[in-house]
């Protein structure tokens, strides 16, 4: 059963200091099943983050409809929680205080809140660091806090906007594995934006490939790899084939960009 339904979604940005607008994405149709892990991949500027922010209710759309569990998205809501690329943590709050932040904003009852916060800090492996402040943590640890903050508010849908983009390759792989591990626990619907093809295949049940000018969906590739996923699969014949398919899509985008640059 599909949980997120996008019908003919278009998003436009007003160009600075003019009345003209710029079409970021157009004609987006997508349905995402409850409990599935869907990744969105595309070269920079294809509007993949814009699409995610629109589902989060943080930016308005020019046209079309976005529904989550049948309800129209008119703004941020308790059914969705977002994990950002920049950890976006309050520097003056401890790890505990930061994970608590989302619960405070959603006006959760104070009973058991601290227990709940501690539970999710433990889940992302930061039990020893609850009293630390963000500046004392590594980039990977900060993103764990970011993820714990989103999980703590018990959303139906988890929206992740390139959460591992700023991390080094090794940390990134570890974080991907752990994210899947956490996800397999309660199978919340997850929508994960990335520009890394391997990451998109490794994590996703489906990979949504986006192209640009204007931002649109080129294809949705079903990833038929068994779960739990393991790093050994990265070298399997099936994985290599998916990688080639996706790379071709994105290379085509880069070539058209090259042609525009050559013409200019």
């Amino acid at each position: 059963m599909s949980q997120i339904e996008l019908r003919d979604v278009a998003i436009e940005y007003r160009k600075p200091k003019s009345d003209e607008s710029f079409v970021a994405i157009r004609g987006i149709n997508l349905s995402i099943d409850k409990g599935s892990f869907v990744t969105i991949v595309g070269s920079s500027g294809c509007g993949k983050s814009t699409l995610l922010l629109a589902i989060a209710g943080l930016i308005p759309r020019a046209r079309g409809s976005i529904r989550v569990d049948g309800r129209d998205v008119a703004g941020p809501g308790r059914d969705r929680a977002m994990v950002f690329q920049e950890a976006s943590l309050l520097p003056w709050r401890s790890v505990h205080g930061n994970v608590r932040f989302g619960l405070e904003l959603q006006r959760w009852s104070r009973d058991n809140v601290d227990q709940r916060v501690a539970h999710f800090i433990g889940m992302v492996g930061l039990g020893q660091f609850a009293d630390y402040h963000p500046h004392q943590l590594s980039g990977g640890m900060r993103q764990r806090v970011n993820i714990a903050r989103a999980l703590a508010v018990d959303p139906d849908v988890l929206l992740l906007d390139e959460p591992f983009a700023a991390l080094d390759a090794q940390t990134r792989e570890v974080m991907g594995n752990e994210l899947l591990h956490i996800w397999e626990h309660d199978k919340k619907t997850a929508l994960f934006v990335t520009h890394a093809i391997d990451e998109a295949i490794f994590l996703g049940d489906k990979v949504v490939v986006m192209g640009k000018d204007p931002g649109r969906i080129k294809d949705v590739v079903e990833i038929d790899l068994p779960r739990p996923r393991t790093t050994a699969m990265l070298d399997s014949a099936a994985f290599v084939a998916y990688r080639r398919t996706l790379r071709d899509y994105i290379a085509a985008d880069m070539q058209s960009l090259q042609m525009i640059e050559d013409a200019a």
Partner: peptide
């Protein structure tokens, strides 16, 4: 005030 923090807070319904 940090725009990233404000966006994150808004996503939680601030």
């Amino acid at each position: 005030a940090d725009a990233d923090l404000i966006r994150a807070a808004r996503s939680f319904g601030a």
